[in-house]
Structure formats: C-alpha cells, structure tokens
Nucleic acid binder design. Structure first.
Length: 857
RNA sequence: GCGAGAGUGGCGAAACUGGCAGACGCGCCGGACUUAGGAUCCGGUGGGCCGACAAAGCCCUUGGGGGUUCGACUCCCCCCUCUCGCACCA
C-alpha cells in the first residue's frame, strides 16, 4: 500500500539533517530587518507528543516559515516546561528521580519534534528545571518581596488531596483540580502569594488594547478579573456603641431598601455578636452544616439559601431603621467585606432569602408599567428613598456615596473577583522559594550572591504529604544571609506557572549569564508577534504571563507592557466525536502517523481538515487524502523533471513587498535555476493565458488566506485546485500551446505550487525544488508575488437572473458598459421566455457579476 | 441564570464589504489502465419532479418562523438546539 508513495522517509530525514547542519533557522538580532517572533506554547515533557502538539506546532511552523519567506527575521524557539507534578509522581511510582525522568522525556520528545521538521532555532532550547533558568526567577522573587509584590500569609486555600498541594484559584475548575480532577478541599495554611490584584486594573484595561487576541479569551479574562464599582460603608450594631459591620455594595442607591443584613458564616465579627451559650451553639451548628458541604455541592445552582438569624441587630444608616442580622451561606467571606446589606426589592438573591424568612421588601426603583417579577434590577426612577427620590439609579449612586462620605460612614470602593496568586506548592519538583527563617532575624530573603538556591538531588519522595524538602536536612539547615546564624530554608516550591510566565523573554537571550535576559535582545524581539496555544490557558497561563511581564517592567528589567501581540487559540483534536483519550481508545499516535505517511502529510492534514480555531475532527481517510495529494505533486514533478529543468525558472518577485503589507526580503536569492531565466512565460494562447491567470490567482488567494484570517484550510484547497489545473493543462495543452511556452508555464505552475506549499510541507517541497535544479533552499526564496499582468481578465461571465432566479449567463468584456450588458441580458435566448409574457419593471446591473431583471405581470 | 460562539450535503468544510450556495477534501457510484488493485487516471455525486437510460428543464434547500431588499448562509426581530466560559462575586 505504501509502496507507491513517494519516499517521504528518506526525504524527511535528509532535509531535517541538512537544515540542522546548516543551522538554517538560527537567528540573531538584525536591526536592518523586521523581526517576527513566532511562539507556540512550550510543552510539558510528558514523554510523548500527542496530536494536539502536532497541530499547534504545524501551525507555528507554517507561520514561521511563511514569515521567513516574506523577509522577516523570524525567532522561532522551543523549550520545556520541565517542572511539575507528573515527574514527581513518576518518581514515587517507579523510583526514578524526577530529574532523570524529565530529561529522558525531553530527549524523547525532542526527537519526535525533530521528525516533524519544524524550523526551530534549537540553539535557544531551554528547560525550566535548569538552575541557570530558575535562578533568575528567584532573583525576581526577592525583588518582588522587597516591593511587597510577593508576601506570605495564612489563609484558607484550595487543597488538592491527590496532588498533596495547594492550588491557585485559577487552577480550580468546578471545585476540582485542573490537573487531576480530584475534589478540592479548603485548608488553612501559610503560603506565598504574588500580588496580582495590584495589577487588576491594568490587566483589565489592556484587554481593550489587544486587538490580536480572540474576543472569547479577553472576555474570559475580564470576567475572571471581575471588577465591580460600588461603595463600602459601616452599619452600626444596635445597642453596641463602637461596634460596626462593614459592607460592600454595587448599589449604594438602594440603601433605603435595606431591610436586613447578612454576614458570611465564618465572618470574625460573628463571635463578638453572639449573645449567650444557646446562640453560640446554634452558630456553631450552622457553621458545621455549611462546612460539611463540599465546594461542589455549594456550587450547585438553585439550592435554597440557608441562614441563621442572630440576636444582634444593626442600624440602616439611611433611614435609621433597626433591622435584623443573619449569617447565611449565600454570602462569601472571600469577596468584598464578607458582609452585605440586603435589598430584596432590587436583588434576586436577597429576594429569595427574604421570602423564605418572612422579611420586609421595599421597592426603591419605580417599575415600568406592566412589569411583573420578583426583584427588579433594571433602570428606573428612585422612590421610597428619602433624599434620593426622583433621581436615576446612576445619579442616586453618586449622591448616596457623597452622603456616606460626608457622614464619615464609608466611601466609594472598587472590588475584584481576582484574588492574589497563591504560588506555594508543597512539592519537590519545582523552583525553591529563596527565603530563610532565621532564629534571630526572622524571615529573610536569600542573598543575591547565594543564588541560585538549587533544588537538592537527594530527597526521599513518598507522596505521603508535607513538603519533601522539609525532610532534606542538608537543604533545610542553612546560615542566615544577614546575621550568619542558624536558619531554616523555606521548603515550599513555586507554582510551575511562574516559570512559564517569562520563558518567552528568556528565549531572546537564552544563554545570558548575568541576568534574566539581555536587555537589547528583549528590546529587539519582544513582544511575541504571534502566540499559539490551547484555549485551556485562557485565564491561567495567559493571565499570569501578562502579570509577570508587567512586574518585570516595573522592576525596570524590560520595557514591555504586554507579552503577546496576537494570540491564536487552536481547537482540540478530536476523533469519533470525542477528545482523544486512552480510555476511549481513539488515540492517534503521531509516531505511527509519521511512520506511515510522513511528517508532511501529518502536518498537511492537521492544517487542512479544519480552520485552526475550531476543533479538528481526525479522520484516517482524510489523512490518506492529504497523502494522495502530495503524491500527486511528487509524481508530476518527477515525470516532468527533465523537461522542466530546461525551462526558465519562475521570476523571483521584485523586492518591494507583497500584496498585503508584508515587508521585503533584502535580496532575492540569486538562484534562478540552471537556465537562470527571469522572464515571465509567454502566453500567446487563450489556454496559456487562462492557466497563467489560475497560477497567479492562487498566489493571491493563498497569501490573503495566510495574511488575514489564518484560513489555512482554504489556502491548501487553493493549491489543490492549482494542482488539478496543472494536470488538466498538461493534458489539454499538448497540441494547442507552443512547446516552449507550454513547458515554461508548467514550470511556473510547479514552482509556484512548491513555494506556496513549502511552509505547509517543507520536506517534500524542498526535495522537489532541488529536483528542478535549484541549489539553494526553497526557504531562501521569497514568497511569490502575483503578476498583475497575469491577473488581468479580458472577459467575465455575468449571471442573468429574472426575479432573482438564474436563467442565463453572458460572457462579456471586463467592465463592459452597463447599457450594453443590460441589452445583451434582455435579448438572451435563455432569458427571453421568462420575460416575454411579463413587463420588465427594473433591471439591476452589478458590473462584472450579475444582471437581475425584475418583472411584474 | 449571565456572557461568548456555533447550527450549511452521507462526513470535514467553503462562500471577500448582501450578488451563481455547497469550492477543496473524504466517502460513495461509474468508467479507463491492469493478471490483479485497496495504486493511479477520468467522470458523476444536496433533495425532488424522475420512470429502463440519457439530455434538457423546472421546483425545493444554509436549525425554525417573520422582516428589510431587485436579490439574504450573510442584515434586523422572535424562537429552537448545541458547545464553551462564568456562576450565590453583593
């Protein structure tokens, strides 16, 4: 079956070696050329690449090679997100050290990626578990500590019992661990945090300035940050002078509608407010009941709101009314002040609770006529609201805040859903946090001269809980960098998302030894022009990396506001309607695929089967189709190689940029093939002219598809059409087109196919390019530019409609006079019967496209 | 519930600012070449009128229903379905 396929194995091995030996894709800063930084999210070295990797790296390589041909200085690096739990779990299960396991996996995956033939600058490869990498992150940690951007505190965190570590909020999905899907439980623990909330406003504001990002991702980030404007103010506790309850609200205008107040069950004020032992017991019971529920149960929609009425009462400062106070499970300690004023008239949650507990409901916004419903949250004029009556909601909000401020009760306040990023992990295989606890000095950062704090090799990994580093005596016991006294090292390691928050900066100067990166290199390469990765990182990695980049900027290390100018979120690879997984038995192994069909076919199908942002439905027959297509190209060139070599090569485009704003290469390769021709093929016949137009229309179509919309699938189909046309022309032109002209056109078509297809299928196109007599790499050639002369049309087919239905066609000169086209249409044989018995009311002529004759009886 | 996106042949999908719906590929059908073909090449392939075949033609068709327009997959309104994200965030 494969015996008739072109020899992809030899060809792919051959060219991979040549590219590597030549270091063809190694780049350095070159101020004379425009740069293009093309980056795919680096992989976790799990050991094997999967089809998702094939897809994302095929996309990245396509863009990198295309930009390369367009004359850009392209940075296209690859590395390894090498810290993380799987390595540690493998160590526990199989007794192999995480470092060894990781490096073996990296070696395997590097070999797999090489077989894909991707244009990486391998000299820039990095692994985040390397001390020469993470040392800079430790240095930045210390600087963040100095500025209060890193801090330690005790808090309730998300604990994954399976991973035996803490998770950041972003890493919990529906109450489950993002990695292992275990149910997360709350735990009170000391840990380190990055103050991402200090950047909430900036992260949010820049969401409006990232036009190259998918709206979907920006929306997710905006939601995650969750900015809301409102007010914070105090409710005095009735009969307890000096005791106040602080609440946050986004609707200060509804203060007069506040008929009760609610505290989160774990609110610290609750203990001060309980009256007697009986109430104390009731509170304890209520808290226990709430705590017993898992996160997942609490998240279940539409569950009744439960609450407990306290004996204490508070005073509504707006109307001096004494109102009841509750603790209830629908108020969360983690947001705002952990306490709310309840306005059942204008808040559905409060309405539900008020109805369940027989509480008063006051409407403070005039409902529209005929409105029926429960709580009303729409626009309207204020009523039942004292000094706010008659105002709009917006005006009333301002007036209410002014009123609170004037009385010293509160102020305007912005709240965020975003929490600080908890980066402590109670695990081994991560970057050590460079901090010590001195018996004399307390918590002190490690001295910069002592960095890196290297992860010790000899550690017992049991998986039984507790930081493994805590058991490594040689690591834990250290000298205080300040006083020289006895000190204990921090044994938490950093979340691996810290490493992936700056690897794109390290790529700019991966071997830089005196700092995180070389400033000039970063100035030249950053930001990343095109970032490509999965949607699963819409908030996680992409938010952290944006934050960390801004921190580095504010530390004076780099002048970059945003790391990624444009983002492409590629869809998943699915098969038989489901995500590929071992349990479903629908996994396609990239190695098998490449062995059977070759890397070019694997890449071509990945790019052809669906547009990149959609899920890709894997189809084995479709892969065969892709393979068949490449064979078709291969066979044509081989059958005609001798003949084609004698014809003049395609003229290299003049170095004046392309049709779509690309930037020029400096000098076209002086490699015109053996005959060195530079002239456009003659087109003395209609057939020749039509074929040449097809060639150049294909150039326009493919270029537009790549440049504007990432329509890789339609770009490929355009090339397929050209190949179909090539076969057709070859067969039909033999006696009709002069031999010299014919072979010149065939050569122009073939070379155009190879150039356009090169970034998709680099090996086979390189090989065929060589067979045509070219000494230089296809990728040293500029991207083809359409010849306007070839695109010019003499005639066009115009559709003739009668009352919107196609009844005939006309072939007319391009830009023929409207009147003439109208007359031809009306007189057309096919059209006549449809208009004969009717009155022509109107004739619409769309130049070069269509005529619509509108009639009535 | 809120937000975003999507719904087009047997399947993956095309269709630029409204202008020939279904490009390209898969699958299927037929033919050619062949000892043979699961290789290759050529042709056909949305549904219906429609029959033993063919040609030509007509009608219907982009989730459903309305609307705007000479003309709607595309724009507007209503509804249905699916996917994703957020989900007591005050």
């Amino acid at each position: 079956m494969s015996s008739d396929r072109y020899p992809f194995r030899e060809i792919e091995t051959k060219w991979q070696k040549i590219w590597e030996d030549r270091k063809q894709f190694r780049v350095t800063e070159d101020p004379s050329r425009p740069k293009f930084y093309c980056l795919e999210m680096f992989p976790y070295p799990s050991g094997r690449i999967h089809m998702g990797h094939v897809r994302v790296y095929a996309i990245g390589d396509l863009l990198a090679r295309y930009k390369w041909m367009r004359g850009f200085n392209v940075l296209h690096p690859m590395g390894w997100d090498a810290f993380g739990l799987p390595a540690e779990n493998a160590a526990i299960e199989h007794g192999v050290h995480p470092a060894i396991w990781t490096h073996e996996n990296i070696d395997n995956m590097r070999a797999q990626l090489r077989k894909m033939g991707i244009s990486y600058d391998w000299d820039r490869e990095l692994a985040t578990c390397d001390p020469s990498y993470y040392r800079w992150e430790q240095l930045v940690f210390i600087k963040m500590l100095e500025r209060g951007l890193a801090y330690r505190r005790r808090s309730t965190v998300n604990w994954c019992p399976s991973c035996q570590t803490v998770l950041a909020n972003e890493q919990v999905e529906d109450g489950r661990c993002w990695r292992c899907d275990s149910e997360v439980t709350p735990r009170e623990i000391d840990g380190w945090f990055f103050k991402i909330t200090a950047y909430a406003d900036e992260l949010l504001a820049w969401c409006d300035r990232l036009p190259g990002w998918p709206e979907r991702v920006l929306t997710m980030q905006r939601n995650w940050i969750g900015r809301s404007e409102g007010a914070e103010f105090d409710l005095p506790v009735a009969g307890r002078p000096g005791l106040r309850l602080r609440v946050f609200t986004t609707r200060p205008d509804t203060g007069f509608g506040m008929t009760y107040a609610v505290l989160a069950p774990e609110h610290p004020l609750v203990d001060e407010l309980v009256g007697d032992a009986r109430e104390r017991a009731a509170v304890a019971a209520f808290r226990a009941e709430v705590a017993r529920e898992s996160e997942i149960e609490r998240l279940a929609a539409d569950r009744p709101k439960r609450g407990l009425r306290l004996s204490a009462r508070v005073v509504n400062p707006f109307n001096e009314a004494e109102i009841p106070l509750f603790i209830a499970d629908y108020v969360l300690m983690g947001y705002g002040t952990g306490a709310i004023m309840a306005v059942p008239g204008e808040d559905q949650r409060d309405w539900d609770f008020a109805r369940a507990h027989g509480l008063a409901i006051i409407e403070t916004v005039t409902r529209p006529p005929g409105w029926v419903g429960e709580a009303y949250t729409g626009e309207g004029v204020k009523r039942n609201s004292g000094f706010l009556d008659g105002l709009t909601i917006a005006a009333a909000k301002r007036r209410a805040i002014d009123w609170l401020v004037a009385r010293g009760l509160g102020e305007a306040k912005v709240n965020y859903r975003l929490r600080d990023w908890g980066i402590s992990r109670q695990r081994y295989w991560g970057a050590p946090i460079p901090v010590l606890y001195c018996e004399a000095c307390g918590m002190v950062p490690e001295a910069e001269a002592n960095l890196p704090v290297v992860l010790p090799r000899d550690v017992q990994l049991s998986g039984k809980g507790g930081s493994p580093l805590a058991d490594a005596a040689s690591f834990v016991h250290a000298r205080c960098p300040t006083c020289g006294g006895r000190a204990r090292r921090e044994t938490d390691t950093m979340d691996t998302f810290v490493e992936s928050s700056w690897y794109f900066l390290r790529y700019c100067s991966p071997h830089h030894e005196t700092g995180m990166f070389d400033r000039a290199a970063v100035e030249y390469w950053m930001p990343v022009d095109q970032y490509i990765g999965g949607i699963e990182h819409a908030v996680l990695h992409l938010l952290y990396a944006r934050f960390y980049t801004k921190v580095l900027r504010d530390l004076g290390l780099a002048r970059v506001d945003e790391p990624f100018t444009a983002l492409l979120s590629q869809g998943m690879v699915i098969k038989d309607g489901a995500k590929m997984s071992k349990s479903k038995g629908n996994v396609v192994d990239p190695d098998d695929l490449i062995r059977t069909f070759g890397a070019d076919t694997a890449r071509l199908f990945s790019l052809f089967a669906a547009p990149p942002e959609k899920d890709l439905d894997w189809n084995d027959h479709g892969v065969e189709g892709a393979s068949r297509f490449l064979n078709r190209v291969w066979r044509f060139v081989l059958a005609h190689a001798d003949e084609l070599r004698g014809a003049p090569s395609v003229p290299a485009p003049a170095a004046d940029g392309g049709p779509s704003g690309g930037t020029p290469r400096p000098a076209p390769a002086a490699d015109g093939g053996p005959s060195g021709g530079r002239l456009a093929p003659p087109t003395s016949t209609d057939q020749g002219r039509a074929f040449r137009r097809t060639i150049h229309e294909t150039i326009v179509r493919v270029t537009d598809d790549l440049e504007h919309d990432f329509h890789f699938n339609t770009a490929i189909s355009a090339v397929m059409e050209l190949v179909n046309a090539l076969y057709a022309f070859e067969a039909a032109s033999l006696d009709r087109v002069p031999a010299g002209e014919r072979v010149a056109l065939l050569r122009e078509a073939v070379e155009t196919v190879l150039l356009l297809l090169g970034p998709f299928c680099p090996h086979v196109t390189e090989e065929l390019w060589g067979l045509l007599g070219h000494a230089e790499s296809l990728f040293a050639r500029p991207w083809p530019v359409a010849d306007p002369e070839a695109l010019r049309k003499q005639e066009v087919t115009v559709v003739v409609q009668v009352d919107g239905r196609v009844r005939g066609r006309l072939v007319v000169d391009v830009d023929a006079a409207e009147d003439r086209v109208r007359q031809l249409a009306l007189g057309d044989d096919k059209v006549q019967p449809w208009v004969a018995a009717r009155t022509v009311e109107k004739v619409v002529v769309v130049p070069n496209r269509l005529v619509n004759i509108v009639t009535r009886t």
